[in-house]
């Protein structure tokens, strides 16, 4: 596929036009054109969820979004949550509650957690689990991730 198209994306607040092939995945555009290191490929078919980002306010698996579909979109990744030395409440909660181990799925869980904290501050444990069901973590057994999310909700309420 030799043709290319130009799309415009706002990634973590920075707007940029990039030239992509129409069959490129948002995942690859973010990694290669926007140098977003946190977004990882795990299965490239929407099963493992570790490439999850927030696109226009929704959690999406960036391996399942084609670049043209993302034209004009606003994307948020973990790189956009914090300023140097100042973690967001979600990141702070994951650090304090041991919400990560190998870390390969962690950016996806943090984005899911951020989405929950922002959109469902009264989420029950069952609702939290339902959202987390879309991302696989093989290390933690999820318990400390869920504890971190509950703690982040609390921190947010205190702030």
């Amino acid at each position: 596929m030799a043709e290319t198209i130009t799309i415009r994306l706002k990634v973590n607040g920075v707007e940029k036009e990039v030239t992509v092939k129409p069959n490129e995945r948002l995942l690859d555009v973010l990694r290669e054109k926007f140098y977003i290191n946190s977004v990882k490929a795990g299965c490239l078919r929407g099963e493992c969820g570790i490439c999850t980002v927030i696109m226009n306010g929704k959690l999406v698996k960036s391996c399942l979004v084609l670049a043209p579909e993302a034209d004009g979109a606003e994307i948020l990744t973990v790189e956009g949550l914090s300023r140097p030395g100042k973690p967001s409440v979600v990141q702070r909660a994951f650090i304090e509650k041991f919400g990560f181990q190998c870390g390969f799925c962690t950016p996806a869980f943090i984005m899911a957690a951020y989405w929950i904290v922002e959109n469902m501050p009264d989420a029950s444990e069952k609702e939290i689990k339902e959202i987390l069901n879309s991302v696989i973590c093989r290390c933690t057994g999820y318990k400390q991730i869920i504890e971190a999310i509950k703690y982040a909700i609390e921190l947010k309420k205190q702030a």
């Binding site: 290191n37 973990v78 919400g99 943090i110």
Partner: peptide
């Protein structure tokens, strides 16, 4: 003591794996 682990780069997205 449950001292938080030092590899916080994993939650900020700048941890480097062989994949990267």
């Amino acid at each position: 003591k449950p001292i938080p682990r030092q590899d916080v780069s994993k939650v900020f997205g700048d941890a480097i794996y062989a994949y990267d």
